[in-house]
Nucleic acid binder design. Structure first.
Lengths: 333, 333
DNA sequence: CTGTTAGCGCGTTCAC
DNA sequence: GTGAACGCGCTAACAG
């Protein structure tokens, strides 16, 4: 690959002149400029961002660490993050934390070695993440949805508790009284907060939720399927279910269909996340929609702001989620 | 951030000694080694991959360019690519081509500037990609699923034509005769090949497919929904449909459900891609499953092989897709 | 066993 | 309007 030096020689000028025509950083005679540009084109010269980074101490690269990038929710988030970053001239290094604390540690180390300018962190919040980042290096970090304790980072929240609350309110307003909750693993903060909002709404409505009506399962369609199967085996099944994730809700819808339970006639279901598949489920799923795109672009904006201007005070911001009513919920018969 | 030089000074040794204890690249007395290691830990020194890259002309970073990373199929592929790459010590820069030739050109340029070691290219094959890469720079490239004409790159195919053929065979063996095909845009090679396999199987079975039974739509659930709606409005609707993508099939299933058409009793449906959601559709979708994980790891293996050993001859390899029979297909009543 | 030194490709001061 | 030279952080060849 051609270097600036070679271009300079071939054009009969000095290296610094070449540099200056490339970066438009000082006046160069039209004559010389044209010649240099010609040679650059001819030699297929492409400046080295590596060398540039070494000099400027900036890589224009940001790390994105998520639990699992193939989960539709994270995949959609990533897509918007990538989009926003690209607009501002930054590239994304994609990292899956899924695979345990060990992989995560290794990844963080690699990212630091690569001298990323910043990090977008979507923490699952599982316990094994607790200690890792506390001793983090001096890189700007923006956290999405979940604050790791002891980590100095900007924070962007999506009102998980309010989301759970809104979902429950919707069901209650439809006349439902016996409402179950299908949740992800109890040790995930996301789960806890969503369930918390749900319970608050129930309590406010004077409804009690017996423990058997809250079932925890794996954070997947399979988990949702299992949870619904269990729930619907009850001689007196609930008339509505709040599911803390669309992935699980989709599995649940499948289980209900197989069991011959008609949604929403016999059972109302509301999910959470508004993944693309939710709108084309059978029936189309009523769900709580976090503002994924807004969160992504805000995250990137904040991060780059911090990268550029150093020590602005830490900020945390909460964006509202909205309830998207589709066809999986109906008034109690 | 601490530098090697600072560590050396603090430890009272030379820079090269520090370098050698870090890289285990020559014998260092236990005494000195321990001391240096201590200082490194104390100063939180982290070697700079940027400087290293400049020296070695290797970034251990590979670009992954896909049409749209939030599409579940690509998201799953990416997840495995990331996984395989990480195992071998490489990071992934994620790029969405979606957004036109302009963004694509810009991305390619950026990747070249960043001096990626290699590129995994999942081309949509749309026409606007044709010209871009022909003048590509000397970076190893592995293409997935689709060969761009005139591009020197290894190739990993997934038997699209055979997949379409297998899907059609399955339907035919179930006794169906009037089989429609819902396809993505006609200008995408992926679509063309899958439809090609379908038509071959039909022809082999002595069946003809009138043009109205082949409907092209956008490559999304919405597109599938629209296509099914149109198809089912026919006074004599087909008894089975081959859909060239699961995303579209899911939309189709939704349309069928809304229209009161029972799957598979009245209509058999087979999809393509085996995305995660397919297994929990209503009913669970019979589909053609490309070996995503195998393709991903093979792609990375091939790419890194080429990165390491330079000019091995170009290879192209086809991996077989398999038909996953679930509950959306049944014998003709 | 350890230190000195010359680049890697580029941006930037300083001098002309 | 242009060029020479230094340094970013690191590796490797060469001395000692």
């Amino acid at each position: 690959m051609a270097t600036m030096k070679q271009v300079a020689e071939r054009a009969g000028v000095s290296i610094s002149t070449v540099s200056h025509v490339i970066n438009n950083t000082r006046v160069v005679s039209d004559d010389v400029r044209r010649r240099v540009l010609g040679i650059i084109d001819e030699m297929r010269y492409i400046p080295s961002a590596v060398a540039r980074s070494l000099k400027n101490d900036k890589t224009h690269t940001i790390g994105v660490l998520v639990p699992n990038s193939s989960n539709p929710y994270f995949a959609e988030l990533i897509r918007w993050i990538e989009d926003a970053a690209f607009e501002l001239g930054y590239n994304i290094i994609l990292c899956n934390a899924h695979g345990g604390a060990q992989k995560q540690t290794a990844y963080l180390r690699l990212l630091m070695e690569k001298r990323i300018d910043g990090l977008v962190l979507v923490a699952s919040g599982a316990d094994d993440e607790q200690d890792l980042l506390v001793r983090h290096e001096a890189v700007p970090i923006v956290q999405l949805e979940r604050a790791l304790p002891g980590l100095d980072a900007d924070l962007i929240l999506a009102g998980q508790e309010e989301g759970g609350h809104a979902a429950a309110r919707h069901l209650i307003e439809l006349g439902h009284r016996d409402i179950a909750c299908v949740a992800g693993p109890a040790d995930l903060p996301r789960t806890r907060e969503r369930v918390g909002g749900f319970l608050r709404a129930m309590t406010e409505a004077g409804l009690t939720v017996p423990p058997v009506r809250i079932v925890h399962e794996e954070f997947t369609s399979a988990g949702g399927h299992a949870a619904f199967t269990r729930l619907l085996a009850d001689p007196h099944p609930p008339t509505a279910v709040f599911v803390t994730s669309d992935l699980m809700a989709l599995g649940g819808l499948c289980a209900a269909g197989v069991a011959g339970v008609r949604v929403p006639a016999q059972l109302s279901v509301v999910g959470y996340d508004d993944i693309a598949g939710a709108g084309y489920a059978l029936p189309p799923l009523t769900t709580v929609a976090p503002p994924k795109r807004a969160m992504a672009s805000l995250a990137i904006a904040r991060l780059i702001e911090r990268i550029r201007s150093g020590c602005v005070p830490l900020r945390s911001m909460a964006l509202p989620s909205t309830l998207v009513v589709r066809a999986s919920t109906a008034p109690l018969q």
